[in-house]
Each structure stands twice: as structure tokens, then as C-alpha cells.
Design a protein around this nucleic acid. Structure first.
Lengths: 226, 226
DNA sequence: AACCACATACTTGTATGGGAGTAAAGGCTG
DNA sequence: CAGCCTTTACTCCCATACAAGTATGTGGTT
């Protein structure tokens, strides 16, 4: 059974239902293939079918759910090609961003990045995987922000929705401590004011998923689309 | 008054309304700031508020409309930062794609691209701007497809929604014939099997918008967000 | 004339009922 | 026993009714 939700009736309920379901899907609390029913969810949280339905529509429009008319609504399976597309886009964009960032990297900027690394290392030492995932996101977001393109990260963050479900599994399965070394390699490239070095480090970092994805597909084929 | 629509009652109406409104917004037939009323549109096309409302929700979720509760729904203004983000992402991704494509460029592939150029030239000679815009999309999509990443283009196409409204104005205002020369420069880089040359040509091509955008903002400030 | 209060006509948000279609279970027939 | 048909329960889709909030215009007061 998924975690419950308390509706704030002072605000519109449909967005609240949407946020709740989206978080549950991205964390794989609602795994791919799970059935979603308007009436069932509506009854459980004490609202009518309408707001739930509107949440379904938004989830379907971003590919997280699939409504089959007169049949039912289901959590979408993970599309391998969507994950690979999002990864390729991230690599292209973020490698460009760090290239633009290399000439701008001054001491203050490098110190902020080093501070992030410290926090990441603390999370790893505590084996606190969820925190590390959050910090990893924040690290990449910070790079975009420092390059003067925070809005770009917002777009990438939306794209990652398919990717995040995989990463949620990756983080539990694979050794994530080496990711810190890759982060440090990116910073090293920035510190050297070497765009090519920073770009290459970023590309290597974001290609990690390519190594892990086949094994994830083998180990849990049921959560992927055929 | 916008072009009308005939609903096929054999199929779900909400997606039809969505497609219709989306096309009207992207073509600026419904300009930024235009008011959208659930009841008004529903009455006009002979359906209830509900399917129209669901179309609004999807449009709002991709940033093309803005629903202000109890106030009204309006076509979103064009966000300059969203346009710039989409452009930056396109440049990063498509320059990567042509770089991957350069080693793969054989005669058959180059012939397909040359054929596209011929069609583009025909459209320009006829001053057929809408056709050229369609062909331009197809050209870029073809490059992605030939690089083996058609799915990536689908993502980019969704991102471009903000950009397309600007381009619609650009095409009417600026000299688009030079775009063909830029397309040819990309092909020249592929023909030479020179990834760096192809990449540079693509980057120059996609930076055109940076030249035009400030002038568009000056000439039509009312369609941009503050 | 300027300003405030209220009534009215809107807007979107939610609840509910009916319709059409699907799927699975049960009973009938061969 | 196997296969087909009917029934039944369920799904989403659309229409309608009601609720709550906002903007506007009108009337009276100051």
C-alpha cells in the first residue's frame, strides 16, 4: 500500500493528487504496470473522480501513465529509448555547459563546488543513498546555474522523469561512491580552466548509465516496456 | 476568429480539442494573452465544458496556456528564457548528432539530404514560407533519424513548442533563404566526414535565432512575458 | 465629483449521473 | 468436456449541476 495523502481543501485538489501520484511513480512506490483507478483513489483520499482524472491526464501527457479508454489506467513501463534519449540529451547539454563554465571558474565558484563534494562524501559515508541522489541533482543544477542557465536545468529536470525511475534502482544496486570521483574530475577540469577536460569528464560521468542499464534490464525486465 | 473544427464523435473529443488549440497557439492564430473560455469554446464546437477543460490542463502542463483559478485561462506569453533554453539545448544536442553522423555519411545518406535541399529551394522560390518551415523541421528530424536517434528528435520537437511561435514570426520577418546555405554547409561537413566542420556548421545555423530574437522582442513586445 | 458597498454576471473547481465500451465470470448448448 | 453466449461488473468519457471565487457595473453615500 502506498503512503497516504492528506488533502488541503483550501487549495485545488487536482494538483495535489497529481504531485502525490507523480512522486509515488518516480520513486517506484507505484511500480510500472500498477493499476490506477479513478474511483478507487478518489474514495481512498476522500475526493470525487474528477480531480483524480485530471491528475491522470497530466501524468499521461508526460508519459508516466497510460490511460486505455474503457479499460483502465496504468503506470507506464520504462521506455528504454526514452531513457537513452534523455541521457544523450543530458550529455550533450551538460558537456556544453561545463565548457562554457571553464573560463568563468574563479575561486569563489570552485569553493562552492568543493563544498558540494564534501556533503556528497558525508552522505556516502553514512550510506544515505536518498540524500546522495538529491545532492547529485543539486550538483548538476548548480553547474547549470553557475553557467548562467538555470532555466536549462529546469527543462532537463523535466526530461529526467523517465530516467529517475531507473536511477532509483541504480543507486540501490550499484556502487555509487565512484560518482564522487567523477564529480571531482569535472571540477578539476574547471579548475584548470580547460574546457575540453571538463567536457570529457562530464561525458564520462553521464555515460555511466550506459554501463548499468543493460544489467538493470536483465535483472528487472518486468518494469520495462517490451 | 480562429479556424473552426469539426468533432469526430466516434473518437474521444478532449484530444481533438487539445490538438486543435495547440496548433492554433503554435501558429499564433491564438496569440499570447488571448483569452480561452471553457464554456465559450465548448458551446462553439458543440461539446460540454469538460473535454475543453481537459485540453486546457494539458496545454497548461506544457506551458502553452495559463489557468488562473476563478479568473480565466489565457494563452501564455512567450518566455524569452524558455526560448533561449530550448535553443541552447537544440544546439548542444544537434551538434552532437551531426558529429556522430559524420563518420556514417555514405552516398545514399548524402543523396537523401541533397534531395531535401532541392525541395527546400523549391519552396523558397515559390515564397512558400509554411512549406519551408515544415521542410526545415523535416531536415533536422532526418538528421536525427539518420544518426539512429529518432526518439531524440521527438523530445526536441516537444521542447520546441515555445520556440515555434517565435519562428513563425521570424519566417515572415527575416530573410530565410540563407538558411538553405547553412543547411548545405552542414551537409558539406558530413560529406567531408569531418565531425568538427559539421558541428560548427550546425552551431552557426542554430545561433541564427540569437541574432533575430532581440529585434523580434523590440517589434512585438506584447507577445513576450515581462 | 470621488468613493465605497453591493448585486450581478462571469470564471474555474468539484461532485455526480448516465452512456458506451471492455473483460471476465457463469450458464447454456453441442 | 469444450465452446459459445449472456450477464454482470467494471473502466473511462462526457454532460450537467452546484459551489466558490473574481471582476465589473450600479447605486447610494459622503
Amino acid at each position: 500500500m502506498t503512503a497516504s495523502i492528506s488533502i488541503d481543501f483550501a487549495q485545488a485538489t487536482a494538483p495535489q493528487v497529481y504531485d502525490w501520484l507523480r512522486a509515488a511513480i518516480l520513486s517506484c512506490e507505484l511500480p510500472p504496470g500498477a493499476r490506477l483507478s479513478e474511483t478507487e483513489i478518489g474514495n481512498r483520499i476522500g475526493v470525487s473522480r474528477q480531480p483524480v482524472r485530471e491528475a491522470f491526464i497530466r501524468l499521461a501527457s508526460e508519459g508516466l501513465a497510460e490511460v486505455r479508454p474503457q479499460r483502465g489506467t496504468y503506470v507506464s513501463g520504462i521506455s528504454t529509448s526514452a531513457v537513452l534519449s534523455a541521457r544523450l540529451i543530458r550529455e550533450a547539454v551538460e558537456s556544453d555547459l561545463v565548457r562554457m563554465l571553464a573560463p568563468l571558474a574563479d575561486d569563489a565558484l570552485l569553493q562552492r563546488l568543493d563544498a558540494e563534494i564534501d556533503q556528497q562524501r558525508t552522505a556516502i559515508d553514512r550510506h544515505d543513498v536518498p540524500t546522495f541522489v538529491t545532492l547529485d541533482d543539486r550538483f548538476h543544477r548548480l553547474l547549470a546555474e553557475l553557467a548562467g542557465h538555470e532555466a536549462v536545468w529546469l527543462v532537463l529536470d523535466g526530461l529526467k522523469s523517465q530516467m529517475n525511475r531507473v536511477r532509483h534502482i541504480t543507486a540501490r544496486t550499484f556502487d555509487i561512491s565512484r560518482l564522487i570521483g567523477q564529480h571531482e574530475a569535472i571540477i578539476a577540469g574547471l579548475r584548470a580552466h580547460d574546457p575540453a577536460q571538463a567536457e570529457q569528464a562530464m561525458r564520462l560521468h553521464l555515460r555511466e548509465l550506459l554501463n548499468d542499464l543493460p544489467e538493470i534490464e536483465r535483472s528487472r525486465p518486468e518494469i520495462f516496456l517490451p
